[in-house]
């Protein structure tokens, strides 16, 4: 008898849990839908495209873009960072998008907290099948550091922070704080199959130049930038 009621209780609990999970999922889907409306009404799509696969075929295609592609935003960014950045968009790229002469004007459209939350849910729902989850964990990695700072030209184009000093080149997005901004697994996926995300870009393709192990090491290292 006792056993029976225990089973019944577990059953009831699991039914409740399923209902709760289901409810949560539909709620975040509703938020994504509201977020998409805000994204459209604020005309974010005028500078960002949100449906994959990647469309750029030529240098001219890339140079025509007014902002980075967002169709895999949910695989690329960390949700917490995204929600905060949309409300307070500090420059990521030192130079203006697609420019080698102008400084980033730092005038990205800002969203109020409510809109930012919805748009974050919407953007986090845009994912790419080319990003495997749980491969890279941010941590210190001496081999990765060696690749980034010595063996390869990464530091020639990317800013990063070392011993409280920001250094490095300016043509690529700054990697200062990349550990809070980027999904570690996306960094590796991007190095491994860059053309799935950015078929035409000023950064060299390292597939076939770095070993798989080196790509994992350098992704681990970059993912640890605070």
């Amino acid at each position: 008898m006792v056993k029976r009621s225990k089973v019944a209780r577990i059953l009831a609990l699991s039914v409740m849990a399923t209902a709760l999970i289901g409810f949560n999922a539909s709620e975040s889907r509703a938020d994504a839908a509201t977020g998409k409306k805000a994204f459209d009404s604020k005309k974010c799509g005028g500078c960002h495209y949100t449906t994959g696969p990647a469309r750029e075929k030529t240098i001219a295609d890339q140079l025509k873009k007014k902002g980075p592609e967002l169709w895999y935003a949910g695989s690329k960014f960390q949700k917490e960072w995204l929600g905060a950045w949309l409300q307070n968009p500090k420059p990521i790229r030192p130079l203006a998008y697609n420019s080698l002469t102008k400084k980033n004007p730092g005038n990205h459209p800002k969203l109020a907290a409510g809109d930012a939350a919805g748009v974050t849910d919407y953007l986090m729902s845009l994912t790419s099948k080319d990003v495997a989850a749980g491969v890279i964990k941010a941590k210190k990695n001496l081999k990765g550091k060696l690749v980034f700072t010595k063996k390869m030209p990464c530091s020639g184009c990317h800013q990063y922070e070392m011993r409280k000093k920001v250094k490095g080149g300016l043509s690529g997005p700054s990697l200062v704080g990349a550990g809070k901004r980027l999904n570690p697994d996306w960094i590796y996926a991007y190095l491994k199959a860059p053309k799935a995300f950015k078929p035409v870009k000023m950064m060299p393709v390292f597939t076939g130049i770095l070993s798989d192990k080196q790509m994992k090491d350098v992704s681990t290292f970059v993912a640890n930038f605070k």
């Binding site: 010595k150 063996k151 390869m152 030209p153 530091s155 020639g156 060299p204 393709v205 390292f206 597939t207 076939g208 130049i209």
Partner: peptide
């Protein structure tokens, strides 16, 4: 210097 990147795959 390795700051001059390899472009063979690009």
């Amino acid at each position: 210097s390795s700051i001059m990147p390899p472009w063979s795959q690009t």
